Simulated assay, not measured.
Amino acid sequence: MKLDIASDTDNKAWPLWSLSAATCFLLVLAFSGTNGSFFWDYHVYEKGLSCYSQGPDPYVCASGDFPFVYPPIFLKIFSVFDFRTAFVFLVLAAAAGIVCVCVSLSLKSFIPYRRLAPCLVLGFLIGGSGFASIQTGNISVFAHLLLVSLSYFLYTRRSGYTLTAHAIAIILFSAIKPYFLAYALLYFFLPRRSLAAFAGVMLSVAGIYIAQPALYPQLWAGFQGAIYNQIVQHGDAGLTIFGVFSRLGMGKVGFILHLFLMLLVVLISAALRYRHGQRSIQIRSASELFYFLAILILLNPRLMSYDFSVFSVCLYLSMILSSRGDGWVGLFLKLFPFVTILPLCLEGLFDIRVHSLTYYFLATYVLLVAALACHWPLRASWSKAPACVAHER
């Protein structure tokens, strides 16, 4: 009888979820203000590799509005392997991974795909971030999606193959962008810890970054200079509180505040879990996993729109798994993207420019507070809510 009631509720709710997702997508598509240029970050990668193959310093040759700011290991790897093939493979693997995650969640959690899929679309389009991420062609968004997918399958069906794939992906992406190393923290919180994998990943990435300045001193110096110019001189410091303070010339203060805020989030989460009977630090449900992955992404003080889009997807998945999208949570998940898309509409309709740092910055912390209020901790203890545990596993 309860299953029939739940099914009837879903049948009534799914058109609203689908309509909300479709409308959100059309608004983003209409008001994103594209200038006819797509995949500009992808072309930056190609330009850097082209400069490197021809001899000039890629950090000088490929400078400009979108400079090449990736470490020498990137040049060394993709001067051997075809970058275009590798990039296409990454995009397809990320897309396949997230689709498989959604199908698996629908089968295991009793949340219909017709509700889960629109939720995923809405999370990805907050502030237009998902569309902007794909439009830039930045490698980070696809790397995040692949690592989130691998993390989910490592949690649900632990095996040597999934652990190896997960560890190799962390090493590869961390060699390009060090903040992907945060995903290795997951090994401490799985139902079966993987301390050997954590040590292997840390030592491998440390070895890569120790070797680069020793083996390629000129390239490394160029890389450091490019990073400094991008973050400090151009003020490209991201969307978190660190980015806000960096624009005010107080980057060190912003960095300390970011660390303090992340520590506060961790302490609040731990205290609330303990209060509600979750004494173990192990991840106990899929909704907790996605919350945890969102926090790992947010550890990066220089959070960009392509990082933010996957951060918001993780929190959206976490919230809908915890609540099934019912009550105030469902209303929030359906309406919040439209609030963040409003600046795009103002610019497209009235040429009123609102800097993306403003609404991404606010959206980041509003989403975090909403996720805490929604399900962290669960509204009832594990002993009193077996059904909730069952539909999340």
Rank of each mutant, 00 (worst) to 15 (best):
G243N: 15
H144L: 15
L181W: 06
A62V: 03
A286E: 11
A184S: 13
W14M: 08
R84K: 07
W17I: 01
W40Q: 11
A385G: 01
T340A: 10
A221N: 11
Q282I: 15
L367Q: 15
G238H: 01
F39I: 11
E347C: 04
A196V: 08
L147P: 00
P386Y: 11
C314H: 01
T162S: 07
Q218L: 12
I227W: 07
A221V: 13
M202N: 09
G55V: 02
C374Q: 04
L321T: 09
S194N: 14
Q282D: 11
E46A: 09
A211C: 06
V369I: 12
E392C: 07
T136D: 13
A175D: 02
F153K: 02
K2N: 12
M202G: 10
A199R: 01
L125P: 01
T164H: 00
L346C: 05
A270N: 03
R302H: 07
I170S: 06
C61K: 03
L342F: 15
I168W: 06
S159N: 07
V389A: 12
P112E: 05
V60A: 08
F38G: 10
A373C: 09
A371I: 05
V148E: 00
A270T: 00
V266G: 01
A21V: 08
L3V: 14
V28L: 00
V69N: 06
P377E: 05
A211G: 05
I77Q: 09
N300M: 13
Q233F: 05
P377K: 11
M262V: 04
L185S: 08
